[in-house]
Amino acid sequence: NNKARDLNEKGIELSRNGNYKEGNVAFLRALELEPNNPTTLSNLGLNKYFEDDYDNSIKYFQESYKLSDSTYHIAAVNLAMSYFYIEEYDKGIEITNYVIEHAVNKNTLSSAYVNRALNHIGKNNCKEAKTDIIYIYKNYRDVENIEYHIKDLAEKMKNCVQQRV
């Protein structure tokens, strides 16, 4: 549907400019025309994430991923990011494990490893997080913005305290 696509694009542009409320309106109007569009649902989830509305971001990411038959992996990666912020680290690790096993796109895989490491840090699985960070560094250095993520993860690792069993 061209009108739904145009509304989705408008929502993206508004959101890039920080106008999440208007972006949400555009995404919701697009969903009225195409209620099962995984991309639009994921974009709405990302807006909710940027608004710190993690419960709704999770709802939209889950719906996007479900409607795509678990093939729209970027929704799952963003879902893991939202799980981190509500401290549901096991769920974040589980969904990124699935993406890592099934995705082929290098950008998606790098994001999955970043978000898995993030959730490992949240859970104080320091050894696993460090393994992911090293893997990211060795395999994804050419991915856009990865240096930022590596530095961010390394900074967060300073607060990671592995629990001894």
Rank of each mutant, 00 (worst) to 15 (best):
I86Y: 02
S57M: 00
E128F: 10
H149R: 13
Y54S: 10
S15D: 09
I95L: 03
D52M: 12
L46P: 03
N145L: 15
K106W: 09
L109S: 09
Y60C: 09
Q163W: 08
N36V: 02
E34H: 03
N8R: 05
A117C: 12
I150Y: 03
N107A: 14
E22V: 05
Q62W: 01
L7N: 06
E32F: 02
L31E: 05
Y49S: 02
D52T: 13
N36C: 08
S42A: 15
V25E: 14
D69A: 11
E22P: 10
I74K: 10
Y137V: 09
E32H: 06
N97I: 04
G122R: 05
N119F: 03
K59W: 03
K158R: 14
I150N: 00
T40G: 02
E34A: 11
I95R: 00
N36K: 15
G45S: 07
F61A: 05
K123W: 07
K21G: 00
K127Y: 11
S57C: 05
E51N: 11
L14T: 13
I146C: 06
S15H: 07
N125M: 11
D52L: 13
D6V: 05
D69R: 13
P38R: 12
L46C: 07
E128P: 02
N2A: 01
D52V: 06
N47I: 05
E155C: 00
V104A: 11
N159Y: 07
N124W: 02
R16G: 14
S42M: 10
Y113T: 11
V165E: 15
D55E: 14
L31W: 03
T40Q: 06
K21A: 14
K130S: 14
V165L: 12
L153P: 04
K91P: 08
N107F: 11
L118A: 11
